[in-house]
């Protein structure tokens, strides 16, 4: 599977998790890992799975490194029909009203432009007792399996 692993981060936690997921997947798959701040909406590729790790910051906002991407996507408003993405969220239930709103908002934004979500959006709670990677690794493996069905194994 050809995977573009993207992260939106504020404190670096999402970046670290993305790097961990890359290390986990790259033995079997072609994985490129990039900060969303270095990714443009016209770089989406229908032959790839776009796997996103995104945190939440402030009052339920997107983290700093995802904001320019979201703004560019809203401005250009391209059709993302045929694009597949999966998304994993990082949040803190201490702020329950806006828990994981960053990944939720980004998923909604991509879907609104026609991109298709693969699998469920899974979220990690920084105030919980799970390690993010313990949730993210099985999620990533499952997501890749689903994407192989949707996009094709040799994509």
């Amino acid at each position: 599977m050809n995977i573009m692993l993207l992260y939106g981060t504020e404190t670096g936690n999402a970046e670290m998790l993305a790097e961990d997921i890359m290390a986990e997947l790259e033995g079997e798959h072609a994985v490129e890992c990039r900060n969303l701040s270095d990714f443009a909406p016209d770089e989406f590729d229908a032959g790839r799975l776009h796997m996103i790790v995104c945190s939440t910051y402030g009052d339920g906002e997107l983290p700093a490194s995802a904001q320019p991407f979201a703004a560019a996507l809203k401005a250009a408003s391209p059709s993302l029909s045929g694009v597949h993405f999966a998304i994993f969220g990082l949040g803190d239930s201490e702020y329950e009203e806006t828990f994981n709103f960053g990944s939720k908002g980004l998923a909604e934004l991509l879907a609104a432009h026609g991109a298709k979500q693969v699998g469920e959006r899974l979220t990690h709670d920084a105030s919980g007792s799970d390690m993010a990677e313990d949730l993210a690794f099985p999620w990533a493996a499952q997501t890749v399996a689903l994407a192989e069905e949707a996009i094709g194994e040799n994509a």
């Binding site: 670290m16 201490e94 920084a126």
Partner: peptide, 15 residues
């Protein structure tokens, strides 16, 4: 002390 989620950055620093 009651913002343990914010202290999660320590996992990055341990590395």
């Amino acid at each position: 002390a009651d913002h343990q989620g914010t202290k999660g950055v320590i996992r990055q620093f341990e590395r």
